[in-house]
């Protein structure tokens, strides 16, 4: 995984609360056996009308949203299924950050393992970001804050280990495999 230390991009806002994983990537696209190519189906049933044409009313289809890499979402983003296809789809659609006041546990864990920066901010920061779509945000993963265009700052929450893995580009499977001796010891102690 490539290290992620700083990110600088514009935000796009999806203010709905409880955006679930079926919304992010509907189940009918989960028959894939690879990680790639899901981006064109991200938010499928919001993005496209029933005749398959893009719905111009959906925020991610609007010209201002093009090139935005930061998604500011309503509370409890990513609830529902454990499908890692959800962060894969968002990354493949060009997003690199999801910010909310609350992010569902499994989604957050999945996202961070794939280098999709899923972070939470307090209610006041969340309100501000929801009300200011399209602004340039500078996200400093090392320092743990978001800088606004006017220089104002919000801190964000991110687990220390996840932060470390992102900054150093550490892959978690490699980390686990290096603990082989401890795992073997546990297995010996607990052999039935």
């Amino acid at each position: 995984m490539n290290p992620i230390r700083q990110l600088h991009a514009r935000s796009v806002v999806l203010a709905h609360e409880n955006i679930d994983t079926d919304r992010i990537i509907p189940a009918r696209f989960l028959t894939t056996t690879t990680r790639s190519g899901l981006g064109r189906h991200a938010f499928q049933d919001w993005r496209y009308r029933s005749d398959g044409t893009p719905d111009p009313a959906f925020v991610l289809n609007q010209p201002e949203a093009q090139g935005c890499e930061i998604l500011v979402a309503g509370r409890n983003f990513g609830c529902g299924s454990s499908r890692e296809h959800a962060p894969w789809a968002l990354l493949d659609a060009g997003l690199r950050v999801v910010i909310s006041s609350e992010i569902a546990d499994i989604f957050r864990s999945n996202a961070l393992k794939n280098g999709l920066l899923a972070i939470t901010v307090d209610a006041a920061a969340h309100r501000y970001l929801l009300r200011h779509p399209g602004i340039e945000l500078r996200i400093d993963v090392v320092a743990g804050h978001i800088t606004l265009p006017d220089g104002g700052r919000f801190g964000f929450a991110l687990d220390a280990f996840a932060r470390h893995c992102l900054i150093a580009g550490i892959d978690q499977l490699g980390f686990l495999l290096r603990e082989d001796a401890a795992i073997r010891h546990y297995e010996e102690q607990h052999a039935a």
């Binding site: 299924s81 454990s82 499908r83 890692e84 296809h85 546990d105 499994i106 864990s109 999945n110 393992k113 794939n114 687990d159 280990f161 978690q172 499977l173 980390f175 686990l176 495999l177 603990e179 082989d180 795992i183 297995e187």
Partner: peptide, 22 residues
């Protein structure tokens, strides 16, 4: 509990998971 596909790989390879206690 449910896990993502990366973690499925973790468990297949190591029989373990990296977890914070809920």
């Amino acid at each position: 509990f449910g896990i993502g596909t990366s973690e499925v790989g973790h468990v297949l390879a190591s029989q373990c998971l990296l977890q914070r206690k809920p």
